[in-house]
Design a binder for these strands. Structure first.
Length: 459
DNA sequence: GAGATGACGCCATCGTCGCG
DNA sequence: CGCGACGATGGCGTCATCTC
């Protein structure tokens, strides 16, 4: 076929006819487009060729020789330069802003540092925490805060590595605490802790008369204390009988006087039927009830006993106290001058007054009321505490000592051996208490005997 | 086998810090 | 100054181990 065509093309007529038909084809626009695309592709291919590039550059150089073209080019460059100027300005502005920001940062830093310094101040810190506390008193705020914290924690704990971190932290903190505890116990051996127990107690319980103490005790340790024939040493005979006592009837029958120093005579009997009374002393009902009120407020042991005090009386006392605090302010200067009077009071057994009650007016009222109280002294009140109660064993009553001697222990338990990391034997505690700076244990003969019996029982 | 003890995890709360 | 974020810490329940 091809061979035929070649041969045919040799014929001139045929060739002309072919060219003409092609021409007519090219006139067709569709065909032209297709051809143009083909040309573009071909050109692209050609540009990849360096020679073609060189040729193109040369062509451009030729074009630049034309003035108009150059002017146009310069204009373009100028506008580009303007753009770059604008950009520069922008950049400078940014820099300035950054500088400002940095300055602000510095300022902030300084401010923070100042705050940090301020927070080192205890007063400031206390104020801050106080504020937070006040804010946290609000129910809504607390709810909100705990919810927020809860969500935060949940989010935090969703990552296992955080959880692990938390665990490790806790572990190390516990270890630290343990170490400190052990070190502390090795060196100080918990005696200091006991010391704190003692000094924390309020002073007004220290100076209580024997019988006032008995009236308040929830337990009565009955024991026979005798003077030995030679030398007059005291000894205890037989066992200690621990009797639980109901304080409520005693308190109910005590007159609720408002005078602080008013005294009444109280006799204690083993049984009401008996004629002989074992103890007889003048007692200040005010002091007794005040002490009971204090014990009820502070002591868990007394709170659980369920004693009720007349509330009306308390409110009246509170009123009086408020008035007295005002008076106290007024008469504080005068009080210094009353030291002589106080020393006189101390020498007089019956007018022994608590430290808190050293007011000008008290001595006066005491003097005023002595004649009034005298008839009471004759009749007096008689109690038989613990009558009809069943004695309980010292074994089964671990709180007996605290309840028997409220003036020594102020209704507070000693810290338990469970709370100490090193257990301390009862004898060590007794030794410490007897040797303590505070002589109240050493001066209480019944308590010494009580301790003796307890140790004998334990061993 | 019962209770004592220690380690641990989870949660709530608190004090402190940073930011707007 | 007030609020939110954050870390420290205490309380409580649980489990494992020890002791009698």
């Amino acid at each position: 076929m091809t061979k035929n065509k070649r041969e045919v093309r040799k014929d001139e007529n045929y060739r002309r006819a072919e060219a003409e038909s092609k021409k007519s084809q090219r006139d067709n626009s569709d065909l032209r487009q297709i051809e143009r695309q083909r040309e573009l592709v071909a050109k692209r291919e050609a540009r990849k060729n360096e020679d073609f590039n060189k040729r193109e550059l040369a062509a451009k150089r030729e074009v630049r020789k034309d003035k108009n073209y150059r002017r146009a080019e310069a204009d373009i460059e100028k506008s580009q330069r303007d753009n770059s100027d604008k950009r520069q300005i922008e950049r400078q502005r940014e820099l300035a802003a950054k500088r400002d920001a940095r300055k602000n940062e510095d300022f902030n830093k300084r401010e923070l540092a100042a705050k940090r310094e301020a927070r080192k101040n205890d007063v400031f810190k206390r104020n801050e925490t106080e504020k937070k506390k006040i804010a946290r008193q609000d129910e809504d705020y607390r709810k909100h805060e705990s919810e927020r914290d809860f969500h935060r924690k949940q989010e935090y704990r969703s990552h296992p590595e955080n959880l692990e971190n938390e665990r490790l932290k806790k572990q190390s903190s516990r270890q630290n605490k343990l170490d400190i505890d052990r070190c502390y116990d090795k060196t100080v051996k918990s005696t200091k802790r006991k010391n704190i127990d003692f000094t924390d107690h309020e002073k007004d319980l220290k100076k209580k008369r024997v019988q006032e103490e008995i009236l308040l005790s929830l337990r009565l340790p009955f024991m026979q204390i005798r003077q030995l024939p030679r030398g007059g040493q005291l000894s205890v005979k037989g066992n200690v009988v621990n009797v639980p006592v109901e304080v409520q009837p005693t308190i109910n029958s005590l007159p609720h006087t408002l005078e602080k120093s008013g005294t009444i005579s109280v006799k204690l009997k083993k049984k009401l039927e008996f004629k002989k009374c074992d103890f007889s002393e003048n007692v200040r009902p005010f002091a007794v009830i005040c002490a009971l009120h204090y014990l009820m407020r502070t002591s868990d042991l007394y709170k659980s006993s369920g004693i009720e005090i007349n509330k009306d009386w308390i409110t009246e006392i509170v009123k009086i106290n408020e008035e007295e605090t005002q008076n106290e302010k007024n008469s504080r200067e005068q009080e210094d001058n009353q030291d002589q009077n106080d020393s006189e009071d101390d020498s007089d057994h019956f007018s022994e007054v608590d430290e808190n009650e050293t007011h000008v007016g008290n001595t006066d009222t005491l003097l005023d009321h002595i004649p009034d109280d005298n008839p009471l002294c004759d009749t007096g009140l008689t109690f038989a505490p613990g009558e009809g109660q069943r004695p309980s064993s010292l074994y089964s009553d671990p709180d007996a000592e605290y309840l028997s001697f409220p003036t020594i222990f102020c209704g507070q338990r000693r810290s338990d051996n469970k709370d100490r990391s090193v257990s301390v034997h009862y004898t060590d505690i007794v030794k410490w208490e007897l040797r303590s700076m505070n002589r109240r244990v050493a001066q209480s003969v019944p308590n010494i005997f009580f301790k003796l019996k307890k140790i004998q029982l334990k061993t």
